[in-house]
Design a binder for these strands. Sequence first.
DNA 1: TTTTAAACGAGACGGTACGTCCTGTCTTGCT
DNA 2: AGCAAGACAGGACGTACCGTCTCGTTTAAAA
Lengths: 199, 199, 199, 199
Amino acid sequence: MTTPVSSQPRHHGNRHGRSEDARLAVLEATDDLLVERGFAGVTIEGIAARASVAKQTIYRWWTSKTDILFDALIQDAAEYFTSPDTGDLGSDLRARLGEVATFLAGTDAGAVCRALAGQAQHDPAVAARFAAEFVAPQRELDVAPFRRAAARGEPVPADLEAAADQLTGPVWFRVLITGQPVDREYTDALVEGLLRGCG
Amino acid sequence: MTTPVSSQPRHHGNRHGRSEDARLAVLEATDDLLVERGFAGVTIEGIAARASVAKQTIYRWWTSKTDILFDALIQDAAEYFTSPDTGDLGSDLRARLGEVATFLAGTDAGAVCRALAGQAQHDPAVAARFAAEFVAPQRELDVAPFRRAAARGEPVPADLEAAADQLTGPVWFRVLITGQPVDREYTDALVEGLLRGCG
Amino acid sequence: MTTPVSSQPRHHGNRHGRSEDARLAVLEATDDLLVERGFAGVTIEGIAARASVAKQTIYRWWTSKTDILFDALIQDAAEYFTSPDTGDLGSDLRARLGEVATFLAGTDAGAVCRALAGQAQHDPAVAARFAAEFVAPQRELDVAPFRRAAARGEPVPADLEAAADQLTGPVWFRVLITGQPVDREYTDALVEGLLRGCG
Amino acid sequence: MTTPVSSQPRHHGNRHGRSEDARLAVLEATDDLLVERGFAGVTIEGIAARASVAKQTIYRWWTSKTDILFDALIQDAAEYFTSPDTGDLGSDLRARLGEVATFLAGTDAGAVCRALAGQAQHDPAVAARFAAEFVAPQRELDVAPFRRAAARGEPVPADLEAAADQLTGPVWFRVLITGQPVDREYTDALVEGLLRGCG
DNA sequence: TTTTAAACGAGACGGTACGTCCTGTCTTGCT
DNA sequence: AGCAAGACAGGACGTACCGTCTCGTTTAAAA
């Protein structure tokens, strides 16, 4: 996570809502702790100490450590995904799937994402929010190349959701469950298999 | 989980080896707590209280609550999966994938499995054990139909691991990530898509 | 405590000097909280909330909650004690001691006084201020009857301070320590004993 | 407070009730903190830290810091007061009152006692316990010399409680309220005044 | 009439301590 | 030897107040 430390004087208390410095310090400290010590090593007390922030300030703006991680994830994900339009379905899908794999397996934000995916297994509320605020928008990005291809008059699978599952599912599966590496060769093969099957 | 409560008087202490009563009471209490209160509601103290067992007894035989869950999972999974040989690749795969989906999404043992999959995201040791003791054997069952088909002289995909990923990955993805239902229609379509693509 | 709530509109801010409304609201809220919830239930935040006053306004004019209680005590004590001159030492002493007993044990201001006496045990600064600003003036009132008697030519004890202690001490002792009731009969007997002993 | 540190190995956990080591460490740490930092400086966390004891252990056996102080006071007071029988009422009273004054004003246990007397002003439950467990037994010691004198056939005041108040009251008053010194001369004069008044 | 500065309400801030829950370790006495 | 019981040191939880700090408004004396 980037560290946009403000060079402004640190204001403690501000009628006009919350301190942006405190917010960023908390997000950064949370990210750092997650990467350094894992999910169990992320504690509200630890975040407060590392961010030089009062616990009460954290509880004022977030409900739990997963709530903080969501903030970090949403923010980081918004910056990460590009989803270029190459004019070719295969290229678009390969680019997209490679980006997903790299994000999940190779970035700090991906670590946050995996932690939340894990916590979603323990807490239905987390699962619901994860599905709604991260997975659903990602699903849109998964499906976009198909829509563009259809608009160009190319043949596309009937059920786009199912098609997206066939691409993304194996990637998530390897990252979360088997721990196998997910390189470009693998994601390209997935795209190839799908297009051959539907073409 | 079944409940083989012994009707024998409960012995506190046993000169020769561990108490099977205590072991079963712990496994059952853990399962119950997981289903009733979720993973966070499973605590060693809670298990001990519900199983009428001393904490020390738990720590003597298990290292952590995930260790207990592994015991429960391995035991339940061994009883669950059947993997019949119908003599037809498509039938075998459909049966297998349906069984996997039902297990993951529709059984108490599946809840244990999901909890461990979740915890695997937080703890590399859990991830490693989950991959080795649950995922790897399951992978063997995933691949078995292909091996039998190959033995019958039928054409099979070159990379069986990848083929298995394409079937199992979307199922896990839906169960763990999107929360979408995984019915027989969906799993059959996955098998169909794979066989069409490779045939 | 009396409640001179102004019927005027409440002014927020004043170029010259403090808001009398805010001052009175704070004193009253403090008194009320002390009587309703006890000393521990008196908090700056609670006073501010009940008085509809900003915490900062309290900190601007008082240093602590005991400081506020001193304000209330000094004000109330000034209104309470009368100390009439009956021309007779016994009558003067009986009136005075009865007044003291009633104040300490039977008034809201007495509750404030007892709270400060209690806090004086925990904080030397409070003890010093309590001795100087409340006890010393009261001691003057205790001693005044003797001085008037001496001026009239009557015999009085050599050590007036000691004599005052022998009257006031048992009253405070019962109120603060034993909790025994201090009625007129008791205070009269104390005066009687003293006068017999010195006469 | 004395420090009977056991030279035995420190046992953490014992089926047969509480750890005497932990109990003594808590009492000593509490005494020390009270003397060093005053009542407000006595916190459960501070006691736990200084005594190298878990907060939970404190909460298991005591309800509050005043509860701990009571333990310390009762124990120390039991060791302190001697109350010799000289065979003479005046001598007995002088000895007793001197002992009381020294205890209250000049010992660490007296500091605990004053703190509890102070807290009694803030909390009726503390007041009740203080009256019952400390003041009442002390009252018995105050009255004992009179009883012995009566048994010897000497004249004694009709109301022993009142007589005791006249001795003890001024001493407590000076210690708690005025802060004046209470030396032997003063206490002897109090006894003299009382005996002259009743004789 | 306009400026302007003190006091105000509101409330976020960094902190400290609270009392609770759970962890993993330990000892004891029973079976 | 294994067990139920439970006390222990420790650490994190979420809450309540502390005292400090803006912020934007209100007000009346000064300009």
